[in-house]
Design a protein around this nucleic acid. Sequence first.
DNA 1: ATTATGACGGAAG
DNA 2: GCTTCCGCCATAA
Length: 108
Amino acid sequence: MEKIWLIVSMIPEGCVSSYGKVADLAGLPGRARYVSKALKSAPQEMNLPWFRVINSQGRLSFKENSQPYQIQTELLRLEGVEVNRGKIRLKEFEWKPDIATLVLQLPF
DNA sequence: ATTATGACGGAAG
DNA sequence: GCTTCCGCCATAA
């Protein structure tokens, strides 16, 4: 769970990543759903950029027009990420982590 | 132990 | 682009 939080905290402003990708980077391939749980159970005080995590299709995973859906949309737009009808162009906004940086920062 | 339920992913039609 | 279906896995009932 800590690994997941760490990875998510590394996603830079104006970028997004996916549940599955975060799971992979955390060394937990195939556990996208576990990532969503990890975000849900993350303490508020941690200020984790949970809103930068979307699904592999480039879409928000909350029910359309639900409150969290709208909040996520707003937070992303505030940092320059284009969100249209819950959809984001991954080609343009997906985080491509620098391998060297990862190796140096990850404690595992 | 069995079933249901997700902030998921990928393939198929 | 849809939508459906199935695999995946932790949790709760």
